[in-house]
Design a protein around this nucleic acid. Structure first.
Lengths: 148, 148
DNA sequence: GCTGGATATTTCATGTTGTCAAGTAAATGG
DNA sequence: CCATTTACTTGACAACATGAAATATCCAGC
């Protein structure tokens, strides 16, 4: 192996370009998400938890797993949602150790309004035809190993 | 317009599926990035700044713009990088108000090792042929409006 | 049934990221 | 030369995140 510039030269330029594009998409996605959350006076983490709660009452531990963080962190986030009347804690009759976080009616409304304002869905994809979207979907699925 | 289930039904299922896939990619990308940064004892923000500094000495203000945060925030991040010998502040001879953040030799090495450990580039894209990647690249570019 | 270990949650201490307002220093335009 | 703008830092504060220790509960094995 001759004199190479660096490790990155092992990746072909095309792959690098795609990775860079994905990075851009990731950045824009995050930006829009935080922005939409802020419009409803929520932080990103709060919006994420509220979104998870639309799936029904959820144990704190499960929220931590889905957010990939420590359970003690979830305590604070749910505290803040609760203090604003968007969520509440319930006891699990089946296991008195666990507390189920659940969205209140106000929480459900807020979550739904937020979902509606996430324009990332419409705007960039509007550039693509139906056929393009199908191709894109299949490529992304294969990338993610959904079709092994 | 009959009785609809909700606002989300305005978006066709295909678009919804693509949006969901992109969400998955965003989540995985972030996860891997933080993980790779942590392996080098860096936080995500520190890794991001260090990455920006590989482009050469950069005014604090510009870093703030690229990170989309307040300049006062960058002060702290660069402080931490500096205290670990990965970055340093230089004076801009052209304008004595600005301070240029620059990666040290150690910072450059760390940044390069980190870049090399970002497997998100190789692993998922390896599923795709060269032709597939070209198609994907073009679709993403159009999504991002790079080719108006 | 008891007991010991595992599990679910919280609390506390601590660190990083982020905002905003105020302050300092230097450039710039009348 | 002076007022304004610009670049950066500082300080106060909130949210997020981790890790260790405390509490309450469950469960397996005896």
């Amino acid at each position: 192996m001759g004199t190479l510039v660096g490790m990155t030269s092992r990746i072909d330029p095309l792959t690098l370009e795609v990775v860079e594009l994905i990075g851009t998409i990731v950045a824009r996605y995050h930006e829009e998400y935080e922005e939409a959350a802020a419009k409803h006076s929520l932080t990103g983490a709060q919006a994420r938890v509220l979104g998870l709660l639309t799936g029904g009452p959820t144990p704190m531990r499960r929220l931590a797993q889905q957010l990939k963080c420590e359970p003690s962190n979830v305590t604070g986030i749910v505290d803040r949602l609760e203090s604003r009347g968007l969520a509440e804690r319930r006891l699990d009759p089946a296991d008195r150790r666990v507390k189920l976080a659940a969205a209140t009616e106000a929480g459900r409304e807020t979550s739904e309004r937020l979902r509606g304002s996430l324009d990332f869905a419409r705007e960039p994809l509007a550039e693509l035809s139906d056929e393009d979207r199908t191709v894109l979907r299949d490529l992304l699925k294969r990338m993610l190993g959904t079709t092994p």
